[in-house]
């Protein structure tokens, strides 16, 4: 879709109420996904199967946290600062997909890899749909993030290819795909605020439905090429899990994860944890 005749927005001031609402919804989905997926990845720090995989996954988590900050920055332009957006929000206001909040079974490395594969393909499609976004402060940041994401997909794909070289590995990947695939579909779920308006206002150049089709066209052939089956469906929507995340309805694993995520912040009770001492006068 060409955006040449699309109005562009230089910042918060030029947005009508409805446009602002849609943009905020879009940014919360982006930022919360990145924050929460990173929060889960870092659980592998020190316990991944090898030192290298340990560093790789936590490094990916670091990237995703960096990306989350870029999106929270843009939300901060509407008033609330990063700290509030991350640490002081009502857990019920988070809009991440339930894919990223699910806990890992003990030692289930295949889950971490399958999850990052499903997520990172979706993220690539999403960023590509934002490359020409009408909101210019967002557009400024997309190219850089897209570039960093390439390594994430390479990492997940390389691992998947290695995991399926044994029967046991293939079985583990299969179990993870069966479990996670329906949750991954929630990434593309529309809500009242997040729907056709994304495209209508030029915030995104592909609709959620189109991106879901694009995603299915990538992940299904790839997984099948590895000898892994994807759940069958007539309409992908039939596979959706009960909790979508996008509408604020989360699985019962979210409150504990949120409590972990905010634990140190709450415990420290410092209004400015990054400031160690006052500057010399």
């Amino acid at each position: 879709m060409s955006t040449t005749d699309q109005t562009t927005y230089n910042g918060p001031d030029g947005l009508a109420e409805e446009e602002r609402e849609a943009l905020e919804a879009l940014l919360y989905r982006l930022a919360d996904d990145e924050l929460v997926v990173a929060e889960r990845y870092i659980e592998w720090a020190v316990v991944a199967p090898t030192i290298e995989s340990d560093i790789a996954l936590t490094n990916i988590a670091q990237d995703e946290l960096g990306h989350a900050r870029l999106w929270y920055d843009l939300l901060a332009d509407f008033g609330e600062d990063e700290r509030t957006l991350v640490f002081e929000r009502d857990p019920a206001s988070f809009r991440h997909s339930t894919l990223v909040e699910l806990p890992f079974e003990d030692g289930d490395w295949a889950d971490a890899i399958v999850r990052s594969y499903l997520y990172d393909i979706a993220e690539q499609l999403r960023l590509e749909a934002l490359a020409e976004t009408s909101y210019l402060p967002l557009r400024d940041r997309v190219g850089k993030v897209l570039k960093e994401e390439r390594y994430h997909r390479e990492h997940a794909q390389n691992w998947l290819e290695r995991l399926v070289t044994s029967d046991e590995g293939t079985e583990n990947v299969q179990v993870a795909v069966d479990r996670l695939f329906p949750y991954a579909l929630t990434l593309f779920e529309a809500t009242e605020e997040a729907d056709e308006r994304f495209v209508e206002f030029g915030l995104q150049t592909r609709s959620l439905g189109e991106m879901r089709e694009d995603w299915l066209d990538v992940v299904i052939p790839f997984l099948e090429s590895l000898g892994v089956d994807v759940p069958e469906f007539d309409d992908a929507a039939d596979l959706l899990p009960e909790k979508l995340g996008r509408d604020g309805e989360h699985t019962d694993t979210w409150p504990a994860l949120h409590a972990d995520m905010t634990h140190s912040y709450n415990e420290l009770g410092r209004p400015e944890p990054e400031k160690i001492m006052d500057r010399d006068e």
Binding site: T8, Y9, N10, G11, P12, D13, G14, D77, P137
Partner: peptide
């Protein structure tokens, strides 16, 4: 204080 988006974004 909003930064001058008008100028910056373009």
């Amino acid at each position: 204080r909003y930064p001058d988006y008008e100028e910056r974004a373009t």
